[in-house]
Amino acid sequence: MRPDNSNKLDVVDALLENTWENLPAHLERHLLAIPSQIDFAQNHRFDRLSLFLNTILILWAAGMLMYFWTPLEGMLANLAQGLMGFSAFSPQLLAHPIVALIAMACLLFGWVWMDTEKPPGLKKV
């Protein structure tokens, strides 16, 4: 409730006094939750469960890559040979204009991404 320390002077004071609205209860809850939400967003991007699940996923992907590496390597080498005229694992790859273009695009995207202000995710009640 509003503190009762008013000293009404004229009709404008009285009118302004009467426009007072109590804070919605849901808004107060959201305001009080700000510290936990900000801390969670800043410090707990990878909580324990998602870290555990992601570790399993990474191990599985690494296993698959190792298991199928030989045929995959052959396929990539053939593809690169057909497209560019040299192996995908050759140092010549670094000098290819398409690779340079992709690298520049990634660099630019990363730069813009880092410079973009991220929404805190707390805007809407």
């Binding site: 919605p24 808004l27 959201h30 305001l31 700000i34 510290p35 900000i38 805190p120 707390l122 805007k123 809407k124 009640v125």
Partner: peptide, 13 residues
């Protein structure tokens, strides 16, 4: 309500 939230987010930070 949005202004209140944004204000208190800035206050907390």
């Amino acid at each position: 309500e949005d202004i209140s939230q944004e204000t208190f987010i800035r206050v907390y930070k």
